[in-house]
Computed example of a mutant assay.
Amino acid sequence: MPTFEDQRSLLIGVAYRILGSVADAEDVVQEAWLRWSGVDEATVEDPKAYLIRVTSRLAIDRLRWAKSRRESYVGPWLPEPISTEPDVAEHAELAESVELALLLVLETLSPLERAVFVLREAFDLPFSEIAEIIGRAEPATRQLARRAREHVRERRPRFDVDRDERRRITERFVNASVDGDIDGLIELFASEVTMVSDGGGKARAALRAITGADNVSRWLVSVSSPAGIASFMASIGMAGISDLSVGVATINNAPAMVVSAGGRVITVVSLLISDGEIDTVYLIANPEKIAHLEPV
């Protein structure tokens, strides 16, 4: 229906920010469409508000289920990356609300706190409307928002380098990784850099966080070697495929290293940069989480 299609990208945005999963967000929006298709549009005063309300409630319910599922996830769990090239991220505040570091902080909130934070901070919904969505009184909703905002403020990493500098550092990281340049990587890393890998048991990845510039550098170089690449490709069922390409794309509102092969993305590496150094490396290789991305 035209009204629903007009709002689809907005609804995906709401669901993704609440869930941190593209696949789950798409499922939620599909369920919202089924709900909408059974409604007499003439009885809906504000279709946009109605669809946001339905989508948010479905996303909250799904998040409760997803949290229990993530407890049995193999290795670290990271949010699914999304492309936020300039034509996708039209509004700065919306783009900032999908940064990987923020999504990871949101993972530590309760489902209701997360929904309230997203709807208020990213989409600027009035508290009266958010209260109706979550089924709470407005004072209780404001309290949830205040608690969530304080929690995020305390834990959210701060970026003190501009977008151009982030891209330059990312490009240097890509070159050093591809060249197997351990010293070049160490030069880019903070001494206590941490690498978190998400393979989900479906791709070769470190099952625990790796810390220290030397350790992270050596692990990255080992997986970039011919033997490391062969082992990784075998782990995702692509043994023998060697047409790798590596580039930089805007992922979750930041430059990221994207590795492609066989016409699909096989790895995304996002960097948290502070004081001109890489503090954290997020490597996502679970094929189910990156299948929707366009190869470089």
Rank of each mutant, 00 (worst) to 15 (best):
F4V: 10
D6H: 08
Q7H: 15
R8H: 15
L10A: 07
R17T: 02
R17P: 00
V22Q: 02
V22I: 04
A23E: 06
D24Q: 05
D24R: 05
V28S: 10
Q30F: 05
W33I: 07
W33H: 11
L34A: 14
R35L: 12
W36Y: 13
S37M: 13
S37V: 10
G38V: 13
G38L: 14
E45L: 13
P47K: 12
A49C: 11
Y50K: 11
R57S: 09
D61T: 15
L63V: 08
A66S: 12
R69N: 02
R70M: 06
V74M: 02
V74C: 01
L78K: 00
P81V: 02
I82M: 12
S83L: 11
P86N: 05
P86L: 08
A92L: 13
E93V: 12
L94Q: 04
S97V: 01
L103G: 00
T108E: 14
T108A: 08
L109T: 06
A115R: 05
A115C: 11
E121M: 13
F123V: 07
D124G: 08
F127D: 07
I130A: 05
P139E: 15
A140K: 08
R146Q: 14
R147H: 12
H151Q: 13
H151G: 10
V152Q: 07
R155C: 05
R156M: 13
R156H: 08
P157D: 10
D160I: 10
D164V: 15
E165P: 01
R167E: 15
E171M: 12
F173P: 00
G180M: 11
D181I: 09
L185R: 07
E187K: 15
L188S: 08
E192W: 09
D198R: 04
G201A: 05
R204C: 02
A206S: 10
A206P: 02
R208M: 10
A209R: 12
A209F: 05
T211S: 12
T211C: 07
D214W: 09
N215W: 03
V216A: 08
S217K: 00
R218S: 09
W219N: 10
M233K: 09
A234T: 12
A234H: 09
S235Y: 11
I236E: 00
D243C: 12
S245I: 08
G247M: 11
V248F: 07
N252W: 07
M257T: 06
S260V: 01
G262H: 06
G263R: 11
T267W: 01
G276T: 13
V281R: 01
V281C: 05
P287T: 00
E288D: 05
E288N: 07
H292D: 06
